[in-house]
Every structure is written in C-alpha cells, then in structure tokens.
C-alpha cells in the first residue's frame, strides 16, 4: 500500500461555508464533520447505517454520513443540522419539534431534522404515513415518534401557510 494515496486534500461547502482540508482517505464524512470541522451536531450512533443519527444533506439529499468517506464530499455541498436555522430564527420544523415533544435527549434529532427537511422539500403536504415512512430509517429511543410526526405535520402546514420555505 503506498502511503501517498492515504491522504487527500478536499474542498467542499458545509452550511454555505467553503472549507479545504487534508484528510486521511478512510475518514468517514461523519467523523470529518465532527472532528475536523467541530460540527458536533451530526451525531454518530451505530456507525454502520442503521440508526440514522448521522443523516446530513448531501447536495440537498439525505444521506448517512457514517456511510460516506470525507473524500467523497470533495466538490459537494453538505448541510448539517447546524445549517438549518436562518441566523437566530429556527427552521419551522425545529420550532415545531420543541413544541410537540418531538425530542427528549436529542440524540436522534439532527438526523430526524435533516431527513424531514428533505421530505418537506419533496412533499410540502405529507400524510402522517408519509412522515412515518420517511423516518423509518431513524431510530428514536425517547419520544415514541408520535411527537415527531405531529411536529412535522404542523411545520408542513405552517410552511405552506407562509408560502413555502426550503
């Protein structure tokens, strides 16, 4: 194995900011975000694609950051939970989660939020069933999911009333 191909310099955008870093090629995107960029909002639970806590938006599409290498994000745009709020104004979904008991310990929350933001972009008027299917790959051990579903439906209604927001 030649050591030369074991690190690489990557350039990417995270939450609208550009970064350039030299990273080991085997570093996962989740660890890159947490350890290199200190964006610890992206959580890691299982690190093998089961729990959904590490979900980020990769060019706008939800993906499990523990199942990607940081080098694969070269030239791409990442949004993490830290990038959802608009300055001090929380995303309507973030507000709704806090109002509907959509979180308790908060471990699953970043993955829930990124996944559901994508859902609401794709489908501004989801049914409760659509929401349940969308978060079928996100485990929550606290809420029983009901509050998360209620919050999503509420946020969707508010966003429709406000004329949509992505």
């Amino acid at each position: 194995m030649d050591t030369a191909s074991q690190t690489r310099t990557i350039s990417l955008s995270v939450n609208g900011k550009s970064f350039s870093k030299t990273v080991p090629v085997r570093l996962t995107l989740a660890d890159f975000l947490r350890h290199e960029l200190r964006l610890t909002g992206t959580h890691v639970g299982c690190e093998h694609g089961v729990c959904g806590a590490c979900t980020i938006l990769f060019d706008g599409q939800s993906a499990r950051a523990c199942l990607m290498l940081a080098v694969q994000a070269n030239g791409h745009e990442i949004t993490t939970v830290e990038g959802l709020a608009d300055g001090d104004a929380m995303h309507p979904l973030q507000k709704a989660l806090s109002e509907h008991h959509g979180l308790q310990c908060g471990f699953c929350t970043p993955g829930m939020l990124t996944t559901l933001v994508e859902l609401l972009n794709d489908n501004p008027a989801p049914s409760a069933e659509d929401v349940r299917i969308a978060i079928s790959g996100n485990l929550c051990r606290c809420t029983g999911y009901e509050g998360i579903v209620a919050a999503t439906l509420d946020a969707a209604a508010q966003m429709r009333a406000a004329g949509g927001r992505s």
Partner: peptide
C-alpha cells in the same frame, strides 16, 4: 477511525 487503512482511487 472506523474503516481499516486502504488506498483510495477515484477513476
């Protein structure tokens, strides 16, 4: 790091 060491190629 979770994954074992390897060399990376992206043709």
């Amino acid at each position: 790091m979770k994954p074992p060491p390897f060399s990376y190629h992206d043709p």
